[in-house]
């Protein structure tokens, strides 16, 4: 047994469905390769954690999953990434639609400089998900409740989202991401700007979100990875070194690099 609490009972949901299947993924920034030969299957209704030292390519790989890397001119992605058996890099796939299905929460809270309501309502609005104001109100409330923010902001929905505290902003961004009802939620170090209480709230939220979505979370906190995830992938220098049940990774890592990292010797 390690210092990590991994005794959490496994959830009963069926975990064999593969939501995202990535094979042979290479990512280049100009001439430098940031991701080398990564194969990973991300399961549905599961929390998958990406861990690894800084600069190892966790964010880069995460951003491949919703084609956010398309916005970087120098970035080139090779290999195959299937979402529900559909190649997301196929020419007929519209990245705009893909990103509605694969939501993302960023490391730094980035609410729009608009009202709290408009922040959450933006996604459903542009996708035409709500036909009436009433429906939209409902979506906003539900999303804010899911992000554990409703009670704090229900009386000031028309105040700017940028006026919230850092932790509230991050939860607002989560509410914004879940409002479009994504099938996969990508979270890039969502708690790095949060205090322990807000972190606990977000973790609770992630636990709840996995009932419906597949959640992928990048984190530098191994305690967090151990607490929230069922699967863990360890990246090192652009390689996927080890990918297994979180339990196994933290208790019985196969690769010496994984072991050094989780015991604090590299990173």
């Amino acid at each position: 047994m390690t210092m990590f609490d991994v005794t959490k009972p496994e959830t009963a949901v069926d975990q064999t469905d593969i939501k995202i299947a990535a094979s042979n993924v290479q990512v280049f920034y100009g001439d430098t390769q940031a991701i080398k030969d990564v194969d990973v299957d991300i399961q549905d209704k599961t929390v998958t954690a990406f861990i690894g030292p800084s600069g190892c390519g966790k964010s880069t790989f995460l951003r491949c999953l919703n084609r956010m890397n398309d916005t970087i001119d120098s970035c080139r992605v090779e290999g195959r990434i299937l979402l529900d058996e559909q190649d997301i890099y196929a020419p007929q796939v519209d990245p705009v639609q893909l990103r509605a299905k694969v939501g993302m929460v960023f490391q730094k809270p980035n609410p729009f400089p608009k009202s709290i309501y408009d922040n959450v309502a933006y996604g459903p609005k542009i996708h035409g998900m709500a036909r009436t104001k009433g429906e939209l109100d409902e979506v906003v409330e539900k999303s804010l409740r899911r992000a554990a923010l409703w009670e704090e902001v229900k009386d000031r929905l028309d105040t700017p989202g940028t006026g919230l505290s850092g932790g509230q902003q991050q939860r607002l961004c989560i509410a914004r991401a879940v409002a479009t009802r994504p099938e996969v939620l990508l979270m890039d170090e969502p708690c790095s700007a949060l205090d322990p209480i807000a972190t606990a709230q977000v973790e609770e939220l992630i636990d709840e979100l996995k009932q419906r979505f597949s959640v992928v979370i990048v984190t530098h906190s191994m305690q967090q990875a151990a607490r929230v995830s069922q699967k863990t992938a360890f990246f090192h220098l652009g390689n996927l070194v080890e990918y297994d049940d979180t339990n196994t990774i933290f208790t019985n890592p196969q690769d010496p690099r994984t072991e050094s990292y989780i015991t604090g010797r590299i990173g």
């Binding site: 509605a100 939501g103 960023f106």
Partner: peptide, 18 residues
């Protein structure tokens, strides 16, 4: 305009024009 705002909008599925 900070890139984070663009990323935020893109990530919820806004088109470039939006």
């Amino acid at each position: 305009v900070p890139p984070s705002i663009r990323e935020a909008a893109l990530a919820v599925g806004a088109s470039k024009q939006q």
